[in-house]
Computed example of a mutant assay.
Amino acid sequence: MNLSSISSHIPSPQPQWVKPLAKFGLAAKGVVYCLVGILTFMAAFEIGGSSERNLDKQGVFRWILDQPFGQVLLALVAVGLVCYALWRLTQAFLDTEQKGTDAKGIGRRVGYAFSGLVYGSLAYYSFRLVLGSQNKQGGDNSRRTLVRELLQKPFGQWLVGLIGLVIIGIGLYQIYRALSGKYLKNVQTSAIKTELKEIIIRFGKIGYIARGIVWGLIGYLFIKAALAANASQAGDSSRAFAFLEEARYGSFLLGAVALGLFGYGLFMFVRARYEVINTST
Score class of each variant (00 low, 15 high):
A28H: 01
F61R: 09
V18S: 03
T40I: 10
C83I: 02
L254D: 01
M1G: 03
G161C: 06
N54C: 11
G161H: 06
I209N: 00
G263P: 07
Y274C: 10
N230T: 02
I200M: 12
D66C: 08
K224T: 06
Q91G: 13
T189V: 13
G216E: 04
V160S: 04
A43G: 01
A78P: 12
L244C: 03
L3I: 03
V36K: 06
I277Q: 10
R202Y: 12
A225I: 08
A240G: 00
Y183G: 14
Y33R: 15
G219E: 00
R53W: 07
L227Q: 07
F114L: 15
F155D: 08
N54Q: 13
C34Y: 05
I47G: 10
F252Y: 14
Q67I: 12
A258I: 11
Y125P: 00
L81S: 01
L162D: 09
R202D: 07
R143C: 02
I206V: 05
L179G: 05
R62I: 12
G80H: 03
V82W: 05
L266Y: 08
L21N: 00
Q188K: 15
R128Q: 12
S232T: 12
Y33W: 10
Y220Q: 03
A27E: 04
A44H: 05
F69L: 13
G37A: 01
R248V: 11
R109Y: 05
V32T: 06
G156C: 09
G164S: 04
R271S: 07
K185M: 06
M268D: 06
G204S: 05
K185W: 04
A258S: 14
G207Y: 00
A240L: 00
L150C: 10
S142T: 13
I200C: 11
N54M: 11
L261A: 13
